[in-house]
Design a binder for these strands. Structure first.
Length: 252
DNA sequence: ATGGCTTCATAGTGAAGA
C-alpha cells in the first residue's frame, strides 16, 4: 500500500495539482490537510473523476482534512472522540485492513499564545485516543501535518528556532509520547539525505535556499512493515505551490 | 529590521499560517 500525506493549503487552489499528483503517483491513500473547504463545497466529482474515493471533514477558511483512496473507507471517524473541537483537524478510516488516521495538528502560533495551550491539550487528547485506537487496530498509520519538528536535524537553523513553536520541548515530548505508544517514524527507518524538509516558508525564497522544517510525518504501528519512505519535492517546484510537499511511504 | 509570502473573507485591510 502506497500511502501519502500532503498539506495542500487550500484544495480549491491546489485541486489540479492534487489530480495530477494522483494520476502520476497512483497512491492507494492520500491524506490531505488544510483543505479550507466546507463539506457542501467539496470537489467530490473532481476527485471521483480521477478514479478515487474520498471522505472529508472541512470548514470555511481554515483547517479541513480528507482521505482519498482507491479502496473504500469504512468506519469513518470525525474528530477525536470525547474531545470537543470546532476545528476540523481529524478524519480516520479503515482502508483494506489498515486504520488510517489523518491529522492536522494545531500550529500553536507562539509559546505565550492561547493557541499553544490548545495545541498541547490537543496533543494530550490525541495521545489518549491513540492508546485505545492502537489496541483496536493493530495495523495503524498516523499521518499528517504534525506542526512539530521532532529533532534539531529536522530544522534548517536550530539556533534561530530555539524557543519557537514547532520545536519547543513540550511539543517534542508529545511527539515522543506517540513514539512511546509504539509508533515509529517511517521517514527515519531509512537513510535519508541531510537537510530533508517537508515545509518551506513562502517568504525569503525559503525553498530555493532549502530553509525548511520536517513537520509532516507518517507514523506506523509495529504490525506494519514499511519498505520505503520519502519526501516528494516535485509539487513544491510547481507554479503556485503549497508551502508543504507530500511525504510518501510504501507499507504492508 | 518581528518584516518577508500566501490564502481567505472582504471589498480596506486583517488574521493566520509555520
Amino acid at each position: 500500500m502506497k500511502i501519502a500525506t500532503w498539506n495542500v493549503n487550500s484544495l480549491k487552489v491546489r485541486l489540479e495539482q492534487v489530480q495530477n499528483w494522483l494520476a502520476a503517483n497512483q497512491p492507494d491513500v492520500l491524506c490531505l490537510q488544510e483543505t479550507k473547504t466546507e463539506d457542501a463545497k467539496f470537489p467530490l466529482a473532481k476527485i471521483q473523476e480521477t478514479g478515487y474515493q474520498v471522505v472529508y471533514s472541512g470548514q470555511k477558511t481554515y483547517n479541513g482534512v480528507a482521505i482519498i483512496s482507491k479502496q473504500p473507507a469504512t468506519d469513518v471517524q470525525y474528530g477525536i472522540p470525547e474531545f470537543a473541537d470546532e476545528q476540523k483537524r481529524v478524519i480516520a478510516a479503515t482502508i483494506s485492513d489498515v486504520r488510517v488516521i489523518n491529522v492536522y495538528i494545531p500550529n500553536g502560533q507562539s509559546i505565550d499564545s492561547d493557541k499553544y495551550q490548545y495545541k498541547l491539550a490537543w496533543l494530550a487528547a490525541l495521545q489518549s485516543w491513540l492508546k485505545d485506537e492502537m489496541r483496536r487496530y493493530p495495523k495503524l498509520v498516523l499521518l499528517g501535518d504534525y506542526n512539530i519538528a521532532p529533532e534539531d536535524r529536522d530544522v534548517h537553523d536550530p539556533a534561530a528556532w530555539v524557543g519557537n513553536v514547532l520545536v519547543s520541548e513540550p511539543e517534542r515530548a508529545a511527539f515522543q509520547g506517540l513514539q512511546q505508544l509504539g509508533l515509529r517514524d517511517a521517514f527515519r527507518q531509512f537513510e535519508q539525505a541531510e537537510k530533508s524538509y517537508s515545509w518551506w516558508d513562502y517568504r525569503m525564497m525559503g525553498f530555493r535556499r532549502n530553509q525548511g522544517l520536517r513537520i509532516d510525518h507518517i507514523l506506523l504501528s509495529s504490525a506494519i512493515t514499511c519498505s520505503s519512505c520519502s519526501i516528494d519535492k516535485a509539487p513544491r517546484k510547481l507554479e503556485r505551490p503549497s508551502d508543504h510537499t507530500p511525504v510518501v511511504a510504501e507499507v504492508i
